[in-house]
Design a protein around this nucleic acid. Structure first.
Lengths: 213, 213, 213, 213
DNA sequence: GATGAATGAGCCTTCATTCAT
DNA sequence: GATGAATGAAGGCTCATTCAT
């Protein structure tokens, strides 16, 4: 006597519950120190049930990374739309990234952590691949904007466009991550500096990118 | 005839063997996924023997981090000495950091990983403290150079010196780290870009820092 | 069809199996020299399974101590009920203790061992606390009976009641324990003596406690 | 080129040092929680050296038990000599035991602990056997005194002499041990009771043993 | 005689995953 | 579809004892 399958809706609902609870736990205690039992308990499901929706612990984790990347992507797009010329769009892309870090520290931590653990990444796993691709897609936005900036004259022309894209990308992600780390550690940092360094970075970038006259 | 205490030399030799093997394993598989048994086996010693030289797994790990920081420090100092004005010293500091990453990718990975988890560390452990101090010391070098650069006029004066120190520090570490991650992930990166992006970063920095006329 | 939670009955059955095997092993070899692996093996379960029913080795051990105290308590109560005057109740309490020792030598050994190490126990652990309380409760019975004996005139009045309670308690526990130890060690003891010494102790106590005329 | 053996004196001196340090450690932390390394360190000798003087950890432990029994024996003999009639000698034997407990709590604890761990006793080991014998010898003193007491009329004649010997022996050891345990635990014990219970016990014994008229 | 570096079995405990129900 | 009891490998660490020097 076969039962009918759960509706897609229902499946998504359950996944969402699990991810919601897992997100809290992973964020608080890290991947290694969070057990499937805890996640099951927090989700008010049986341990085995989690495995119906996620094939293993890593899969669950990557789902969160992916979701984080989606949020980031949306944020970037919405920030970009508000600006007119390409330079401002690029700067806003940086601001969006900073905003992502500030508003979704949990998702941010997954995205970053995921990237730090390249050694564990198994290129066979589909979740890993799709996460790659999403990340790639965001980078493509930046590359496009740089091209536009060169066209509309809002950024200086004496810089190699590919190198610039790479540099900005690496630089922005890197600086936010380092900021996050240092913030906790160097409490003796000049407070004013700490508070404003990310915004300062955007200004700095602006000065550097805009054409000199 | 008493079995003499091992000479300091001999102790260092054994520590080196263990650290050498541990370095390889930690680098390949990460801290969590490397077991003391494996390290012992690779070192051709009994498990207990490892504990004669390192009080626990973390201690062994930090010894590697510390050694990495020492190498980095020496590299920076030697690079700096070759330059005359402060701006060039600063730029060379960046080059030293990049060189460290290129020449000692394994030590580099420990230093970075350590920094990612520093916040969770136990400030009671002496190894943790000394590692922390070493890291601070390197940052101090940069701060000093910026002061000098403002004095000798080799860097522009319209930038807040504390913010600049922080920014350069965060930016350099961040960009190298991101480069390292992306390099493995985005193989479709323009190869030319990938190869030269770090050097490009230094040039970029130079243009940004030197006084405009 | 969900796999139901084990019924309370089933849980108790499993606990009983584990405790039964653990009891034998602890009795034979002591706490320190019995490993969880052995207990698991003897119980025909996986090591991890033991931890589903007992949170750790100490918890398992205390469950046995507690069970022993329960048996002792019941034995005492049943013995006391058969007697009328307080002196006889007190003497029967001693007999019950001796009976406990004879009939449940394994439980007896846990109770005694527990008492020897009580001072070192962690007063945070609930099992420890409940065991402590159970032990207190039994002592309270004795104190009550002495009061009654003074009232109903079945024991002499020229003895300090608090000292007497303490003395009887210490003496009875102490003598049985020493008997147990010596029995194994001094096999050259007059056999007749050895057999009857505990009963002799009760008679002796009777002569000592009853009022002289 | 053979070296001459250490003099017996020298051997004893070293043994004494080791035992002295071991005594402190075992007393503080118990047998299981004291390591040979600690003992070696405290004795200012190498770990291997300990094994030249004691064949293993248990042997060292039993040497302490044995020494404790020797002290007890001497104490008893000296106490006995001061008394004239047999009853008083018997009571003094009890007092000597209590005194041993009070003055040498460390040795006392070994003697008792040793007896509590019958399960570990290997009747093959010579140290174990000699310890048995020493303990036996002390018991023989008591038996002899009871015979004398029956002869000189200082103790009542209506009690079986063998049973009495056994009972007094068990009772005295037992009560002191239980006192020791309870003292730590039941701080709510009437303080007066706790302080005087052991002396009370001796008086009680006296009343019980002396002939009625 | 003395040393202490080396050994490695053994300990308790955790937890991702499976599968009978 | 859902459950959660059961599994057992794996992990970090300790320490009595040995033995080459």
């Amino acid at each position: 006597m076969p039962r009918r399958n759960l509706s897609e809706e229902e499946i998504q609902r359950k996944k969402r519950i699990i991810m919601h609870e897992a997100k809290k736990l992973f964020f608080e205690k890290g991947f290694e120190n969070t057990s499937m039992s805890e996640i099951a308990k927090a989700s008010k499901m049986a341990k085995g049930t989690i495995y119906l929706y996620f094939s293993n612990k890593k899969d669950l984790y990557f789902s969160l990374v992916y979701e984080g990347l989606e949020i980031l992507e949306k944020l970037i797009i919405s920030y970009i739309q508000k600006e007119k010329n390409a330079l401002n769009k690029i700067l806003s892309m940086g601001r969006a990234y900073i905003q992502f870090y500030r508003e979704y520290p949990d998702y941010y931590s997954f995205v970053i952590k995921y990237e730090s653990e390249k050694a564990d990444l198994d290129p066979e796993e589909p979740k890993v691949v799709s996460t790659y691709e999403k990340s790639e897609k965001i980078y493509d936005i930046l590359k496009l904007l740089i091209l536009k900036g060169l066209e509309d004259g809002s950024i200086r022309k004496d810089i190699d466009k590919d190198k610039l894209a790479a540099l900005l990308w690496l630089q922005t992600i890197g600086i936010v991550q380092q900021y996050e780390l240092r913030k906790k550690l160097y409490e003796n940092w000049n407070e004013f500096v700490a508070e404003s360094i990310l915004d300062f970075y955007i200004d700095f970038m602006k000065k550097t990118l805009e054409p000199r006259d």
